[in-house]
Design a protein around this nucleic acid. Structure first.
Length: 283
DNA sequence: AGCCAGGGTCTGC
DNA sequence: GCAGACCATGGC
């Protein structure tokens, strides 16, 4: 069940009545789950999603989708921002755990975006042993070089078809480092049919993990990120350096069984808390 | 200079 | 099955 919301259009822009507790755009779009959103000088945010360009702004009571029709919202953005999911009740079900509770009290307006699976998979292959600003830079250059031109400054994420035919040399200058081989392997396995993203969406999560990890450069952590952010498997639990610190510090007896159904969402709250909150333990 | 960043592979035991 | 070297890159 989703929360009740009202939308109204002023002709060009669409206004959604929603609080920052339900959806906080700044936190959601800059918490390390996506890499193609930028903040504008007027504090609005612009992202490239599904071959579309979207600019959004937020006040305490309203999110504005610029140049957006009601049908765009219903067909694309409602799902992308996961507005059909009741996060209040998910948070309630996770409230037994003090660390998770502290994390969502710090930034509980984060939602898991429903991103394209190929984009998420490639993005998190690039993310390994890397930092977020560099990841964003590499992805931006990858899109400018191999994506479809939307405007002069905006390019879509490349298709697996296009990336399956690029060479290592083509990928020079994108700051991918040794990850260039991994991107090529990923796209090649999709083209050959060895990996079918469509069938992975329908697989049991354990089978999906095994399938994804046949791609070079996809280990446990990247597979979990791809599953959580690209396939909306909210039980997936990526363990990166920050979560490792949290596990060592808060969860010496293991992550609670009771949180497993929404472990990915809890993980994202904790990740953002550990990385950005001044009150988080420095380890 | 050395360490870290949303890690994984490969080798050697 | 597991530890350790190594992997490319840029910011601090």
């Amino acid at each position: 069940m989703s929360f009740n919301y009202q939308i109204n259009s002023d002709g060009n822009n669409l206004h959604l009545n929603i609080s920052k507790a339900e959806l906080n755009l700044a936190d959601t779009l800059d918490c390390g789950q996506c890499f193609r959103w930028v903040k504008n000088e007027d504090e609005t945010l612009t992202g490239i999603v599904f071959d579309r360009i979207l600019t959004v702004g937020q006040t305490d009571s309203t999110i504005t989708f610029y140049d957006t029709t009601t049908s765009d919202f219903e067909d694309l953005w409602k799902s992308y921002f996961d507005l059909d999911t009741d996060y209040a009740s998910i948070k309630q079900s996770l409230s037994f755990d003090e660390t998770i509770r502290k994390s969502y009290e710090y930034a509980g307006g984060i939602r898991i975006l429903k991103q394209q699976n190929f984009e998420a998979l490639c993005s998190f292959i690039i993310s390994q042993n890397n930092n977020i600003p560099r990841i964003k830079g590499s992805i931006d250059k990858l899109c400018r070089k191999f994506g479809n031109k939307i405007t002069q400054e905006h390019y879509s994420f490349p298709t697996s078809e296009v990336l399956s035919s690029v060479t290592k040399e083509d990928l020079q200058g994108l700051s991918l480092g040794y990850r260039d081989d991994y991107i090529i392997d990923c796209a090649s396995k999709i083209k050959s049919g060895e990996i079918e993203l469509e069938s992975i969406t329908k697989m049991d999560i354990q089978d999906a993990r095994i399938a994804l990890r046949t791609i070079k450069g996809v280990g446990p952590k990247v597979a979990e990120c791809a599953l959580l952010f690209g396939f909306y498997r909210v039980e997936a639990f990526p363990i990166d350096t920050w979560i490792k610190k949290a596990l060592n510090y808060f969860y010496k007896d293991g992550f609670p069984e009771q949180a497993k159904e929404y472990a990915g969402i809890a993980q994202q709250y904790i990740f953002h808390y550990m990385r950005t909150c001044v009150d988080a333990p420095v380890i």
